[in-house]
Write a protein that binds this DNA or RNA. Structure first.
Lengths: 333, 333
DNA sequence: TATGTCTACTAGAACGATCTATACGAACTT
DNA sequence: AAGTTCGTATAGATCGTTCTAGTAGACATA
């Protein structure tokens, strides 16, 4: 049913009565063809429905103008990042090759597929690969780690300053008058350690007692953590991320507490659902899309040989919504 | 910093003291090499860190063993489908090439990228392309439309029976004793029309009055719809999807109604968050992952020429959780 | 001894593009 | 009139594989 073979340069050349090389020139829109023939060739190409075979093109030219991005199907916010990456890559004339880490598919597998495809650089989103593995990839092509730091000398990293994020969070709540602030941590999640210690340090810096409650990365764990909150009678919680915050909100709601009058809840990530009208979760934003664009630009700069490995750390900012207020404040309507 | 050129067949051949062709035979693990040389070649390849260049391989062999999948970064459930598709493709020795439709990136753009890459078949998830466009693609390679029907003669489709899904939903609620059931529809979303008319027909079949309230595809629209519910004093709602159901739940909660005693709420999609402990949303499941596997197998069968275009319609099933019960039932604990 | 059939291997032509080198006029110098 | 330059066009090599056709040697058969 399908046309057994797609048209090639040769077919177009014959149709237009010129050589293959000239058609190539026209298709790449390089110098060396007159306006008249250019038009004739384009016309023939359009009539045949010709599209250059990118594999052949890549093979010969060496340049693929392809950026490999590995992401996870289980992290919703990766989608937002991929979205932004497409935009940034498009601006510089690059295409993205996506490879997902999925159920039966490891990050190594995903990355190696990208390598086999001839990507000129790799962008790994919240990678969990060991530094030796990363270095091995970096020996082949430039590698940019997005939202994961401490990645070795040879690998670029674009991440968000977790310490600053936590500082902003603590200062926001302390500024509202809170004294008993609890951190529900991220358990074994990627940047959980960093945020936990940052929390301890910031709190002690302000002369407050840092209470940490074990949490995780999902709503379920937020609910569990919500139940453990009472012990220290806090007036505010900083959650590891928005999903955990959502669980905490639910747990408080079930316990008959109202937010923010009985308890302020602050999320992290400023994810899509934090913005929903009925959630209105105050949250620390890492500006994922901005970081994604930055990562893409690094990757391209490295691929084009105009840069050496570097690390960039973005500063998060606070997005205040309805779940944080002065302790005991009247319920927002 | 990066090795300027990766090793090729030639390099391995020289290192092992054999011809390129023989190395090729070993790498593909085809017949025609002795066990001894086979081992010698593999050793040399490993030492050099050789990986076959998939572009060159594809170019020459014609076969890419590549399935193109287009998905949207803005639909969370596409991730689940991609996940399942990877597994199914892996079983048959195929790789997936992903191309996202994102902010500045149309579905045409995404699909054409996949075509340029030499995919042997295309799987389009909830495509919004016109049938002429689909047919044009189908002239090049087999195309399978996933979760979108009415797609023309030349295109395969794997979808879910919306009519059956709605029937199951209506029967579930009617079986529990509900008489006044409302459907909050999907507005302009893909299968909204189908579900709406199915609802009307099923309700009248049971001698019940079919009340439809305008909705949409997101939580926000669910909240709005929730406010419009009171007019007809229903005891149960069938939402267009889980996100809308979540909005309805929220709206009911704000109005002081309790679920399911005052109102039963039924979602559609059985999405990830419907399963969360604090949501426990009853929902009609389309078995997305199962359909995905089916789509992959169709695509491969078509690509290998062992099948002609066909349409398959999966039957959804009901997943009962905590948000549906007999009218006036005691609140579940 | 001649013939055939294996197995293990190789040379060289593809695949569809790009790139380098070169040819051919026409126009412009000198 | 001969030499130079320029714009346009082409032949043929090349990228890293796979594939076809064929060779060389071992061994068995007639």
């Amino acid at each position: 049913m399908t046309d057994s073979k797609r048209p090639t340069l040769m077919d177009v050349a014959q149709a237009a009565g010129v050589s293959r090389a000239l058609v190539s020139i026209v298709m790449r829109d390089a110098a060396g063809a007159s306006a008249a023939t250019r038009e004739r060739v384009l016309e023939a190409a359009a009539k045949l429905g010709y599209r250059p075979d990118s594999r052949a093109r890549m093979l010969r030219s060496g340049r693929t103008r392809l950026l490999g991005v590995s992401f996870s199907t289980s992290h919703a916010f990766h989608a937002e990042i991929v979205d932004a990456a497409y935009a940034a890559a498009g601006l510089r004339g690059y295409e993205l090759a996506l490879s997902a880490v999925a159920s039966g598919r490891s990050e190594e597998r995903a990355a190696e597929a990208l390598l086999d495809w001839g990507c000129e650089a790799l962008i790994l989103i919240s990678s969990t690969l060991g530094n030796e593995t990363l270095a091995a990839y970096a020996r082949r092509v430039p590698v940019v780690s997005l939202l994961r730091e401490d990645v070795g000398e040879t690998v670029d990293s674009v991440s968000s300053d977790d310490r600053a994020g936590i500082r902003i969070a603590v200062e926001h709540l302390a500024g509202l008058g809170h004294r008993r602030i609890v951190h529900v941590d991220g358990g074994t999640a990627v940047s959980a350690d960093r945020r936990r210690t940052a929390f301890r340090e910031e709190m002690t810096r302000l002369g407050l007692e840092p209470v940490v409650v074990p949490g995780g990365a999902t709503e379920e764990e937020g609910i569990l953590a919500g139940g453990l909150l009472g012990a220290s009678t806090p007036t505010a919680v900083i959650a590891f991320n928005d999903r955990v915050a959502l669980g905490i909100l639910e747990s408080l709601r079930n316990g008959g507490k109202s937010v923010p009058s009985d308890m302020s809840v602050l999320g992290y990530d400023n994810s899509h659902f934090a913005r929903l009208s009925y959630v209105q979760l105050s949250s620390v934003s890492q500006d994922g899309p901005v970081l994604a664009a930055e990562a893409v630009n690094r990757a391209i700069d490295r691929a084009e040989g105009t840069a050496t490995p570097s690390r960039m750390v973005g500063t998060p900012h606070l997005v205040g919504r309805r779940t944080t207020a002065a302790p005991g404040a009247a319920v927002a309507t």
